[in-house]
Simulated assay, not measured.
Amino acid sequence: MKPVAILQHEAAQGPGILLDHLRQQDIPHVLLDPCAQGSAPANARDYRGIIVLGSNHCANEQLRWIENERCLLQSALQHDVPVLGHCFGAQMLARAMGARVWRNPCPNIGWSEVRITSRAQQLMDLPAQATLFNWHYDTFEIPQGASRTMYAQHCLNKGFVRGRHWAFQGHLEVTEASVRQWCSEGRSELQRASGPAVQSETQILAQLQPRVAQLHAMALRTYRAWTDQLDHQMSVSLGQPSEILSRFRLKSTDYLRMQL
């Protein structure tokens, strides 16, 4: 049976609680690493759904694997294969829909409040407002035919929906471990970044356990709403993704930490 493809680009930016949800629901899935492999699959019809995670790269960079991902998402749009984008993944989905991605007025790093539209509350089982984890410099315009789902004080477009395709300019999937790893790897970046929406490492890690627990409660409801849209198929096991995950440990640490 067709799996859900998870496109992961950085070791510290894995599927987290989303992977737990897929396993609990017995949804077949495969982890792909277009950044390390230098390319992405071409045909979205090979998958039941496509999940695109964050990246240290910018969605506008002229790299082969980024162009491959854009083409894959355009294939998903053409054949109505549901897409779920997180941060860089949301920007890539916006680009695939013909929308622009550009620099946000200020960096958005750390925990911040977002407001959620009434439609998104009903569709995605979300509350009226929530606290998301963020680490991004860019933003996107709402694509034609899509509607805004989230907005915040320092970033107007925090999410959109078009049909079965959902985008979040933030991270619902993070775990305590991934946030700590992200802060550790990005410590020099945190020391350089500044602005009204930038938190220090100390601020990010303060009350981390309850913040993540609250985020997971919302994320699991949201992920359940998205996976409920997937075409129903008999589940099969694809085995453990340890071999794929191990490749991330061998990846270079010299990635640009300019963008997500």
Score class of each variant (00 low, 15 high):
Gly239His: 05
Leu7Ala: 09
Ser242Lys: 14
Leu250Trp: 06
Arg100His: 14
Ile142Lys: 04
Ala40Gly: 09
Leu31Gly: 10
Arg103Ile: 10
Leu220Arg: 11
Glu10Lys: 01
Cys87Ala: 06
Met150Val: 07
Gly159Ile: 00
Thr175Pro: 03
Gly159Lys: 00
Phe168Thr: 09
Leu220Ile: 04
Arg257His: 15
Ile50Thr: 00
Phe160Gly: 00
Gln240Leu: 13
Gly16Ile: 00
Ala96Pro: 04
Pro196Met: 05
Gln259Ile: 00
Val174Arg: 08
Tyr151Phe: 11
Pro127His: 06
Leu208Gln: 09
Leu77Asn: 03
Ala40Lys: 09
Gly186Val: 02
Ser75Gly: 12
Leu32Asp: 06
Arg192Thr: 09
Ala12Glu: 12
His29Cys: 14
His79Ala: 13
Leu256Phe: 06
Cys58Ala: 15
Ala177Phe: 06
His9Val: 13
Glu67Trp: 04
Gln129Gly: 07
Glu185Thr: 14
Ile51Arg: 01
His154Met: 07
Gln62Asn: 15
Gln144Gly: 03
Thr175Leu: 02
Ser246Phe: 10
Leu215Asn: 05
Gln74Gly: 06
Gln207Cys: 07
Asn43Ala: 14
Met124Val: 01
His154Asp: 13
Ala11Trp: 07
Tyr223Ser: 00
Val212Trp: 09
Ala217Leu: 14
Ser237Thr: 10
Gln62Asp: 15
Gln169Cys: 05
Pro3Trp: 03
Arg162Gln: 15
Val179Gly: 01
Asn157Glu: 13
Ala193Val: 04
Gly195Val: 07
Gly89Leu: 00
Asp125Ser: 14
Ser237Tyr: 11
Ala12Cys: 08
His171Arg: 07
Met150Trp: 11
Ile142Gln: 03
Asn134Asp: 03
Arg187Pro: 01
Leu208Gly: 08
Gly186Cys: 12
Glu10Asn: 09
Phe140Gly: 02
Asn43Tyr: 10
Pro143Phe: 07
Ala36Glu: 10
Gln203Pro: 04
Gln169Thr: 06
His165Met: 00
Gln62Tyr: 12
Ala177Cys: 02
Glu201Gly: 15
Thr117Phe: 06
Asn108Ala: 13
Thr175Val: 04
Ala217Trp: 06
Arg221Asn: 08
Arg247Met: 08
Leu32Ile: 04
His154Arg: 10
Ala40His: 10
Met92Trp: 06
Leu156Arg: 15
Glu173Arg: 00
Ser200Ala: 14
Cys155Phe: 03
Glu141Phe: 04
Val30Cys: 11
Val236Gln: 11
Ala42Phe: 03
Gln203Lys: 06
Ile51Ala: 01
Met1Ser: 15
Ala11Met: 08
Gln129Arg: 15
Trp111Ser: 08
Ala5Asn: 11
Leu73Tyr: 05
Ala219Leu: 11
Gly239Met: 08
Leu73Asp: 02
